Every structure is written in structure tokens, then in C-alpha cells.
Simulated assay, not measured.
Amino acid sequence: MRASPSLALLAALSTVNADLHHLIVGTFGTENLYTLEFDDSALTLNLIGNLSVPDASSWLALSHDKKNLYGTAYSAASPAFVSYALGNATDITYSTTIQSGGNCTSSKAIFVMAATESPYAVYGSPFSGTADCGSVMSVDENGVLSELIQNYTYKSTSGVHGMALNAENSFLYSADDTGNTLWTHSVNKTTGELTYVASLDGPVTGADPRHVAVHPEGQYLYVILEGANELAQYSIDQSTGIPSFDNVTFPLIPSGEADSDYWSDEVALSFSNTYLWATSRSRSTNTTGYISAFSLSSTGNITSQLFLTPTTNSGGTANSVAPSTFSDKYVALTDSSLGFVEIWGFEGTNASVVARVDIEDGGCCANAVWYS
């Protein structure tokens, strides 16, 4: 795709040195991992790796040192999580699969994330069926998933779809989509195991928290409300770690559109933590989803919504946004309806597609993680 003149100028004037960057992409149905290469000078995106793996991964997460990749074993018969060793973005070696076990009897593992501080535990959640639980897994000295060390419970109606740790890895926050609840757990800094602290109902019935992010200053939690199609801001009590709703929300679909026609998806902080990204998906493949960005204060308070722009397609079950790890200027966006990954260029007051690669394998694309 040819970049627009304004985006080409943006790239030319960028203070970031031109470089090649790599992303790893999972799928919802096919047992493949894909590696993409983005050139931030030429503004091109190319498929450079296609690896057959034991299970499809609907969600991927990198270890703190990027030496391991963790995924949900989405195509497995029972909820499980998979671990890969990384030599580089295309040198990916299967290590092991860990079953959720215990009372985690859901049909699918839906989300996985890794701690950024020792003991570098990995946290996972199932979804659908009986999904009132979560899993904590240890890693060995090389960062490979080692064993299931804890099953913990939510409530009988729960279906947690996303989680986030604060910067100190002292609290974990869970977005309970089907239970319309936000959960707070404290983290044992020696084992990584969790202890229940508090739960909070969504702002309204049917708000349905889906994904969450925590500002590194630790004062604010951002929550995607899938059913209400809004981004909500919560303040975090600095002594207890418990969030409270600030009565602050921003729309993720245009005014006048029906909430029932959309389901909002993902929230993520930019490279510098100066901006926040969020997306919604359309339930119809004939209608686009939306992407939005927000400006943040130095402490994380949302100061304004910068834009709400249609995405290229509905998003399918994805429209998952992944800000780059090297610049505020670029974010990756995945689509599972047609099967593609796009790089969007951020111009401060809007964003548009600067590069795209199509991966039409029947299961791609779920989420993307930036390896470099």
C-alpha cells in the first residue's frame, strides 16, 4: 500500500531511526504462528514467517525478556496454555503445553499474560462453558512454562476475557465479561499466586468489562465496556489497590449507533504512555468497527478523546490494537473476518492505514505482539 503524502512526510520527519520491526501474530482456528516485518521508513509490512504449531492461539503474550512466547491453546479440547522459546522473531520453538486443570472446565482458553517481575508467573483465563476460574503458572529458569501452581475462582456467572497487572506486579485486575464485574487480586511477590481483594459491578447492567490496562503510575485503570461500547476510567486507591469508577466514559462507536450492533474490544497504552488506544468491532461483516485514541496526563488521567475513526473492516472477532514498542506513531490492528494485519500511522489528531498484509487462512488474525 502506498503511503499518503502526509504520512510519508511524517515518516521522513520522524525522530525514530528507520528500522525493521517484527510482530508475531496468532489465530483463532488454524495451527499457525505468523511473523511480520514492518519497515518504518518504506512503510511496508511483509509476511516473513509461517510456523505450524500444536494449537491455534487466540491470544499471545511475550515474556519480560522476549525470550519466550506464551499463547492460549485455543484449538485444544480442554483449556490449556502453550509455551515457545524465541531465538528471534522467526526462530520459534515449541516448548510445552500446560493444562488449566482443577475447576477450569471451560471449553476454551481465551487470554494469557506474563508478569514483568520475578517470579515471572504467567496468568491465564478460560472462556465459555464453566469459566469461573483462572490459572497461575510458574516458569523455569529459562522462562518456559513449568507447572500449574494455582486455580482460583471468580463466580458462577464469570467469563474473564482480559487481565492486567500494575507496574509493580502487586495487583492483578480481571475484566469479567459475562459476570459484568471487575476483580482485584493481590499478587504474592514470592510465588506469583493470587489472593482475592475485591470485586466491583460494572457501571450499568450489560456494561460487560472485556479488557483492561493500567497506567504505569498506578493511579488509573482503563476498562473496555464491551456491551456499552465505551471506554471507562477508574481511579485506583493507592493503599488498597482497589479501583473505583470515576463516572468518566468515552464512546467507542458514533452517536446514534445501536450498542447491539457492536462489541468493543481492546485497550492499550502507547509506547510513551502518553496516549491510549481503544477499538470496537461490528457484529456485521458489512459494517466497519472503530479505532480511537486518547491523550493522557502525566499521571494517566484521560484528558481528551482525539478521534473516533472507522476501521477498514468489521474486525471480526479481533480488531485488536497493539501499539508499537518503539514509537507512539504506529499501532498494529488485526482483523479475523477477512484475515489481515494493518499498521496504522498516528498523526496526533487522527490515524490511518500505512501498511497491510493479508493472511487469509481461515483463522487469522487474532492479536499481534511486537517482538522488536
Rank of each mutant, 00 (worst) to 15 (best):
M1A: 08
A3C: 07
P5L: 14
L9A: 14
L10A: 15
V16Y: 04
A18K: 13
L23K: 13
G26P: 02
T27K: 02
T30N: 05
L33D: 06
Y34D: 04
T35Q: 03
D40L: 08
S41P: 01
A42W: 01
L43C: 10
T44E: 14
N50M: 03
L51V: 13
S52P: 04
D55Y: 15
S58E: 04
W59H: 06
L60E: 03
A61M: 01
S63M: 10
S63P: 01
G71D: 12
G71M: 07
T72G: 02
A77L: 06
S78T: 15
F81R: 04
A85P: 02
D91M: 10
D91W: 06
T97V: 10
Q99T: 09
S100L: 09
G101Q: 10
C104N: 15
K108Y: 10
I110M: 08
I110A: 12
I110D: 12
F111P: 01
A114E: 01
A114V: 03
Y120P: 02
Y120G: 01
V122T: 05
Y123F: 10
A131C: 12
D132M: 01
S135D: 07
M137I: 03
V139Q: 13
L145C: 11
I149P: 01
Q150A: 04
A164V: 11
L165A: 07
A167D: 15
A167M: 13
E168Y: 13
E168P: 00
S170V: 04
A175Y: 02
H185A: 09
S186Q: 07
V187A: 04
N188Y: 05
N188W: 09
N188Q: 04
G192M: 11
T195Y: 11
T195V: 06
V197Y: 07
A198L: 01
G202Y: 06
G206N: 12
D208P: 00
P209F: 07
P209H: 11
V212H: 02
H215S: 04
H215D: 01
P216T: 02
Y220N: 06
L221S: 05
L221W: 07
Y222W: 09
E230D: 05
A232Y: 09
Y234F: 14
D237F: 12
Q238C: 00
P243A: 12
S244N: 13
V248W: 04
P251A: 05
G256E: 05
E257Y: 14
A258L: 13
D259V: 06
S260F: 09
S260V: 14
W263H: 12
V267Q: 10
L269R: 03
Y275Q: 08
Y275A: 00
S282A: 13
R283D: 02
N286P: 00
T288H: 14
S292Y: 08
S295K: 10
S295Y: 05
L296Y: 02
S297I: 02
G300H: 08
S304K: 12
L306M: 07
L306P: 00
L308Y: 00
T309H: 11
P310W: 13
T312V: 11
N313W: 09
S314D: 12
G315L: 05
G315T: 03
G316I: 08
G316D: 11
N319A: 15
S320N: 14
K329H: 12
K329V: 07
Y330G: 11
S336K: 07
G345V: 07
F346C: 03
E347K: 09
T349N: 14
A351R: 02
A355G: 08
V357F: 06
C364K: 03
V369H: 05
